[in-house]
Amino acid sequence: MTATTGTDDGRDDCDGRGGLDDRAELARLLPPATGFDLPPGRHEHHRERLMNQIDHDTAAASARDRTPDRAPSRPRLLRPSFLAPVTALALAGALVAGYSAQGGGETAVRADSGASASERAGQAQPVALVLNRISDAAAKSDAGPVRDDQFVYVRSQVQGGDLTSGKLVTGPLAEREIWYAQKPGPQKRLGYIREGGETLPINAEFGDTDGTREGISRPTYRWLAALPTDPRRLLDHLTALTPESERQEHAQAVFEQIGYLIRETVLPPETAAALYRAAALIPGVTEAPDAVDALGRHGVGIAREDRGSSTRSEWVFDPEGLAFLGSRTFLTADTAIGAKGALFDAQAVLKRSVVDEGGVRPQD
């Protein structure tokens, strides 16, 4: 059935306001847009956690400045469970500020605005085929299950960026080992991390005085297994849980959050399969032919670019079995903090396993 406005002879009968009435009629016919928001208070919660980390880093930098004869210490990593979302927010703020100062663009808008549903479907079709293949391979995995009293072990080669000086300085490649505790309920010790020969505890997230519960920032195997396996429902759920920022496209934040989940966890096969199909539904996700991880391993790439912050994040998969190899994030334009192509971070996963004791390497 076709909806029409105006008189029978096709002319507009709205005294020259046909454009406005046409838009109103289209708005009436189209279904309302679906949106997701964080629960009340969560914006302030994440902002406060970020400010605490900035204060901590500033104090540490001042202490180093007061002792010039001392060799600079290796920069500490953020708590791994907190690293992905906070890094995204902090980086987006720094990049947008620099990019805007150079006249490079305005505040980022939602990635799904400005395109029709049919256009988005057409753009997503090629990458959806690739992600469906990756999903099918993940569904055949024999990973897990993981008991509540065990630890997920991940060994990687990583590179990280430092913005302390106001410029992006990428550190050298280093080995990192992480043991994630799977115990349910609020925990004050989330596991252990070993880098540079030193093993340190991973403490609860900033602000979690009673301990951090399992969830989007502490994804235990049990929590992951309880996620929806329908791709659309899963994407909606993760979108609602992922913090928003005015300086980063929310779709980019969700893409990076999924990247964190596939990078440093042991995923139930059904959840892994659903995550890849959910990623195919994110506007702006594309295939990245011949992507490269932190070790220079080439593979099938899945990427998304955040034009507001001039960054591009890529996932890399083995071209044969489509297993996840690693990821990287880099600048896509010259900005105040670095030149186009500068590497912000990169990872190459070498081993995943499940162990009974934190800080102890797997036997095999």
Rank of each mutant, 00 (worst) to 15 (best):
R297S: 13
R70S: 11
T242V: 01
T239I: 11
W179D: 10
N52P: 01
D334E: 11
A111W: 04
D13V: 08
H298I: 08
A174W: 04
A274K: 03
Q248I: 01
G196R: 00
A138Q: 05
Y260T: 06
A278I: 06
A181Y: 06
E357T: 15
R133S: 15
E48C: 05
I193S: 13
T329G: 02
V292L: 13
V360E: 03
Y180L: 14
S73N: 06
A63T: 10
F344L: 07
P75K: 01
P243W: 05
P283G: 09
W179M: 09
G160T: 14
G35D: 14
A94T: 09
G301Q: 01
P219K: 04
M1Q: 07
D345Q: 04
D136C: 04
G185C: 05
D148L: 02
L83D: 12
V349C: 03
T335C: 02
H250M: 08
D334M: 01
M51A: 14
Y192E: 13
Y192V: 03
A339D: 09
G341A: 01
P201W: 10
Q125V: 04
P72V: 10
A84P: 02
T239H: 15
L78Q: 02
E244D: 10
L235E: 11
G103R: 00
G103Y: 00
P362C: 06
A63K: 12
S327C: 07
L78I: 04
V254S: 13
L38D: 07
G122K: 07
V254F: 06
Y221F: 13
G105K: 00
Q347N: 06
A3M: 07
G16K: 06
I282W: 10
D12M: 03
R47T: 11
T67M: 15
V96M: 03
I178S: 10
